[in-house]
Nucleic acid binder design. Structure first.
Length: 419
RNA sequence: GAGCCUGUAGCUCAGUCGGUUAGAGCGCUAGUUUGUGGCACUAGAGGCCGUGGGUUCGAUUCCCAUCAGGCUCCCCA
């Protein structure tokens, strides 16, 4: 790229005309499906208190330790939100949404910020949509989340993916499992990767997620958490699977699936696609029964997911899926001479008031240039106005697709658009 | 945060084994058609060859740095 004086920050991109239409189409699908599932939209500020994100997402996570944009002004510590689960839960607690009764079913669409090295499918400002069910520990809540997520991809036509599912257990199961895992790994501690060594004490489950070659042989034969779930968590996981089966949603149980945020409990899931390259996660989520309390609310079980919109759009491009129709316009008005131009300037609002999309050339160019413009704008009709037409009160109404013309009055033209 | 690769017109890319005016296709503007688009032909506009420094008589071509992009690792959406 030749340098211009100003440009976007690293990893932050403009969404230009031609691209925006895809975003709107995607957003419309999300809003429609959310309505069908009876989820309500929530919009929270782009910035949150730093402490909320640290507590919510986890002090030791990569997101908090190296990926947040934060600054301080006066006594306030601001952070650009890196994800939306903690902020939504904050809103739930702050506004006492539990008082509305029942489980709160919330969804969101918006930009997130993480200070990572950009690459394909990874930006510093990126967009997610997602939802949270706060106030239910019923496995059906988990499955409704997953079902909604899958429904979006199904509607768009992305089929080439894998739904991975696991249970990371409740605190009791997890502590028991962590001990078992540590005992299993301890004899080979020295052979583990450096990264895994640092995780050994605090979060040995993350070792399962390691891609370091030296860790692989130990991971392969590691004890599996599903063998160490207590009765409640095991039953919960069983029901999640059962409901997924009932919905006909295919999944793969992946005992190594451990997700990045600290707040996950029990159900964890991730949707990956081979069409994305290295950053292959389309969406991910899970249950977070302890987060509401962690943030200062009453103990409240909850579950949710987040999906990357850029990654979804990349998958669409790879698969040749057109999300948006080519843009078009009903009528392009072509004028010859000053009198005709004045007439057109006066007529545009009339057409628009009748719901007809219309415009004219703003550059005072030749008729040929105006016709080319009409063509470029994908006009269905060109309305050609010259002195003859003004005198007769009948105008050349050209069908640009069929290349046919009629002589019509304004009323007759407008009538054509009445269905 | 680490490694590798790339950076020439709005876009996709040629090219210069270092040497006077840097090329194509698409797109854009206009003409061929003094009142008609999409096709064709013609012409034109548009590049400090990403930026800064070094080597050299001379660099867009070589070297270094930097910025940006891609791929991989890490991690996640």
């Amino acid at each position: 790229m030749p340098k211009t004086k100003y440009s976007t920050h690293l990893g932050m991109v403009d969404i230009l005309p031609g691209e925006v239409e895809k975003w709107r189409a995607l957003e419309e699908i999300i809003h429609e499906e959310a309505a069908r599932y009876n989820f309500e939209e929530i919009r929270t500020p782009i910035m949150e208190q730093t402490e909320l994100i640290k507590r919510g997402v986890g002090q030791l996570t990569d997101i908090v330790t190296k990926e947040i944009f934060a600054f301080t002004k006066g006594d306030s510590h601001y952070v650009l939100r890196p994800e939306l689960t903690a902020p939504v839960v904050r809103a739930f607690v702050q506004h006492h949404l539990a008082q509305r009764g029942g489980a709160q079913k919330l969804y969101y669409i918006g930009p997130m910020f993480r200070a990572e090295r950009p690459q394909k499918g990874r930006q510093r400002q990126f967009h997610q949509f997602g939802l949270e069910v706060i106030g239910s520990d019923d496995p059906i809540a988990d499955v409704e989340c997953i079902s909604f997520m899958m429904r979006i991809y199904q509607r768009i036509g992305i089929k080439n993916f894998t739904l991975k599912l696991n249970s990371v257990g409740d605190p009791e199961s997890r502590e028991a499992y962590k001990s078992v895992l540590r005992e299993y790994l301890r004899p080979n501690f020295e052979k583990l990767s450096e990264l895994s060594k640092t995780r050994f004490e605090k979060n040995p489950m993350r070792i399962l997620d390691s891609k370091e070659p030296e860790d692989q042989e130990f991971i392969q034969n590691a004890p599996v958490i599903s063998d160490h779930l207590n009765e409640d968590s095991a039953e919960h996981f069983k029901l999640v699977c059962k409901y997924l089966d009932m919905r006909g949603i295919e999944y793969v149980i992946d005992p190594l699936l451990v997700r990045g945020m600290d707040y996950y409990t029990r159900t964890a899931f991730e949707l990956t696609s081979p069409d994305l390259g290295s950053q292959d996660a389309l969406a991910g989520g899970g249950r977070y029964d302890l987060l509401v309390e962690e943030i200062g609310g009453q103990p409240t079980p909850a579950v949710g997911f987040a999906a990357g919109m850029e990654r979804l759009l990349i998958a669409c491009d790879e698969l040749g899926i057109q999300l948006a129709d080519e843009k078009s316009i009903d009528v392009f008005m072509v004028c010859l001479g000053d009198a005709a131009r004045d007439w057109v300037i006066g007529q545009l609002p009339t057409f628009r008031e009748h719901g007809i999309s219309t415009t004219m050339d703003y550059k005072g160019r030749s008729m040929k240039a105006q016709m080319k413009e009409a063509n470029r704008q994908n006009a269905r009709f060109a309305l050609i106005v010259g002195d003859n037409e003004l005198e007769a009160g009948k105008f050349v109404f050209r069908n640009m697709i069929e290349s046919t013309e009629q002589q019509l009055s304004v009323d007759e033209i407008i009538a054509q658009f009445k269905d």
